[in-house]
Amino acid sequence: MRILILCTGNSCRSQMAHGFMQSFDSRLDVFSAGTEPASRVNPQAVEVMAEAGIDIGSHTLHHVSEHLGGRWDYVITVCGGANENCPVFTGRVMHRLHIGFDDPSRAMGTPEFIAGEFRRVRDEIKTRFYRLYAEEIKPQLP
């Protein structure tokens, strides 16, 4: 099963969702991309994912245009910007979903508050994506 997770910058939320979804089942081919990719994966996203036992430090950023002609079982946007600016895919897309999350990289405040926002969003992503996996995706797998 092929899954593409989209965000605007492909540096935080989509990378965390990518890491979690891949950790749920090795039979999944998971990719992430952005409509306006940043220059690197957000270091705080890498840090909070490591706390959860998932290494996304080697993930690379990709532009959504690299994936437009592909065959996808799921294309999932995780931010409003990517949802609104999601291009038309020329390949086959079986399911297109939007599961939105706050952007922790925009959090303002003390370092402790910002770290807490990254953890909160990480945990929300894990919960929502695990529910999608368990209820919808896993039953479709051979």
Rank of each mutant, 00 (worst) to 15 (best):
H59D: 10
A82R: 09
S58C: 05
R92Q: 15
R71P: 00
I5G: 01
A107K: 04
S11E: 05
G19A: 06
L6T: 03
L4T: 00
G34D: 03
F24G: 00
K138R: 15
P139L: 11
G53S: 08
G69V: 07
F118S: 08
P104L: 05
R92N: 13
G100S: 13
G34E: 03
C7L: 07
M1A: 13
R119E: 12
I76A: 03
T8Y: 00
C86D: 04
S14A: 08
H62Q: 12
T127N: 11
P111Y: 11
G116M: 10
L132I: 07
T60L: 13
R96D: 07
H59M: 03
V75R: 01
R40K: 15
S58Q: 13
E47Q: 14
A52I: 02
M49D: 02
V88T: 15
F89L: 08
G100V: 03
Y133L: 06
M21D: 03
W72G: 02
I56V: 10
V121W: 03
R122H: 09
R119C: 05
V41L: 10
S39C: 06
Y130Q: 14
G91R: 11
L68M: 12
S14M: 02
R96F: 08
T77D: 02
T8N: 09
P104D: 09
W72S: 00
C7F: 03
F31S: 08
H62P: 02
H98Y: 15
F101R: 01
L28F: 10
G53H: 07
S23P: 07
M108S: 14
R92K: 15
S11N: 09
R40D: 07
P43E: 13
R106M: 15
G34W: 00
R128V: 00
N83Q: 15
Y74D: 01
R131F: 10
E51H: 10
T60S: 13
T60W: 05
R27T: 07
I5H: 00
H95K: 14
I137S: 02
T35L: 01
M1E: 07
F31D: 01
C79K: 03
E135P: 01
G53Q: 09
F89T: 06
Q140T: 15
R120I: 05
A82G: 11
P111K: 06
Q22E: 14
N10C: 10
A107G: 07
F31H: 10
R119I: 04
S58I: 08
R2F: 06
E112P: 03
M1N: 07
D55C: 11
F20H: 04
R128F: 02
L141Y: 13
I56Y: 01
K138V: 00
Q15R: 08
R106I: 08
I54P: 04
G19E: 06
A33R: 00
A107D: 06
S26M: 09
R131G: 04
I114P: 02
E135M: 12
T8K: 14
R120F: 08
G116A: 11
R131Q: 14
L132Q: 03
I5P: 05
R92W: 11
L141A: 11
R119D: 12
T35G: 04
F113P: 00
C12R: 04
P43H: 12
A45D: 06
P139G: 12
M16R: 04
R106N: 12
V88E: 14
L141I: 13
A107P: 02
M1D: 04
C79E: 04
A17R: 00
R2Y: 10
R27D: 10
V75G: 03
I137L: 09
R13G: 02
